[in-house]
Design a protein around this nucleic acid. Sequence first.
DNA 1: CGGATAGTTGAGTTATCTCAAATGCAGTGG
DNA 2: CCACTGCATTTGAGATAACTCAACTATCCG
Lengths: 246, 246
Amino acid sequence: MALAPPMHGTSLCAACALNEMNLCGAVLKKDQSDASLHPAASQLILSTQTLPARRIISHPKEWSEDAFVICNGWAASSIGLPDGRRQILALLLPGDLVFTDGLFEPMSRRSVEAISEVTYRKFNRARFKDLILEHPELLEKFGKIWNEERARADELTLALGRRKSDERIARLILDLAERLAKRGMMTGQTMEFPLRQRHIADATGLTTVHVSKVLGEFQRAGLIDISVRSLTISNITGLRWIVGPR
Amino acid sequence: MALAPPMHGTSLCAACALNEMNLCGAVLKKDQSDASLHPAASQLILSTQTLPARRIISHPKEWSEDAFVICNGWAASSIGLPDGRRQILALLLPGDLVFTDGLFEPMSRRSVEAISEVTYRKFNRARFKDLILEHPELLEKFGKIWNEERARADELTLALGRRKSDERIARLILDLAERLAKRGMMTGQTMEFPLRQRHIADATGLTTVHVSKVLGEFQRAGLIDISVRSLTISNITGLRWIVGPR
DNA sequence: CGGATAGTTGAGTTATCTCAAATGCAGTGG
DNA sequence: CCACTGCATTTGAGATAACTCAACTATCCG
């Protein structure tokens, strides 16, 4: 199968986490017979939905039996304080798994919000757990995905606690570029960039005002170039230098 | 079995995560026959070790087949930058599980360091995974533990990104008190407190100097009282008010 | 007793925030 | 098509939380 083109609106199942586990794909082409698919895949029942930007996909304390996979668009998982302060915990890209909370318990404090228009597929959490138990190699793959996610969470915590604003923002941009590249969603050094500055602010623990200033400096320094909903990294070495080694 | 007294040096297996999963206890009393223990428990091979304060329990990129459980004392899991900046990701109390990285992959960037003298038990990660597959109810319990940990990580991220220094510190104290209480390690409102101010600083993303000032204010305001290696919450309502609702 | 580690306190600096005003842009309804 | 409203962004001025530096004290341990 050819690489999916990095365009908005294209289904990216080739890069999807579930597909990597040979699960999702089976359901999509249920009628076809594809020997490469995991034999248990047909048991994972999916439904597909699409929401416009700014819409909330999953509410904080909402009880849900489902988890889902982002098929298209960007989303953000965040928690907030009653006075309105918010912190984005993760930016979700196509192919990312979203468990309302872990694999087992629902009812987290997290909420998930669409940044651009988002298409996602729901699947049943309990069934997914059963699948894992029946097919140990899935536990392995799932663990790998889970660990990547946690490693990213660790780096975010480090950034919020110990890095300066420009480091945080540069890191965010580089991280996104890297993740998008893995999905074949970079055209050269350019990516679609649906984030508003308030998303960057909420993801880096800064103010929109300050984000605007730092991004301005980055552009004036020739590190990046932002046009309409799209960001180009013009000087990746410079950006990396700001973040520093490791 | 009676509640273990909240004294340093006492084995706290009653409150231990592994014991809650009916695993650890079995190994401790391998020779006894205890019908309440999980039948698979005897397959979990443990070795016990003790390290003095300040010693590193698990190095960053060190490959290890083992995970462990804190039996006694406090430890800290942290990551750092090459220039020395450090962020503590979690304070580990007796009964906490420590996976060098997740359940599956070793080689994380995290390092674990003893804060006080620490006793811990190693067990084999792979064997633990097999156990989970063989005994589905363990997956359930393990998931619960894992989720609690993640929820705490989320709150930390929120705190570092969006809270002021006094909120962060108050939150840390209350969180510790709550966790210790669950383990029967609070005597009234007093807890053993082996943390140095640099631990608090590294856990809250602040400076030791600033931590000192905030703690001073808290004491002068009659919120807490710190004597030698021990902390008393004198006005829990006041502390909670600083942190704010939820 | 001496040397290391930990905590306190003050003075001055700075990164980031708050407030505010101006501009742009996108969608809506008349 | 225009006026209108709501969101996003930019920019400046001033405020402040937290930092750095530095000196001093206390505590711990051999």
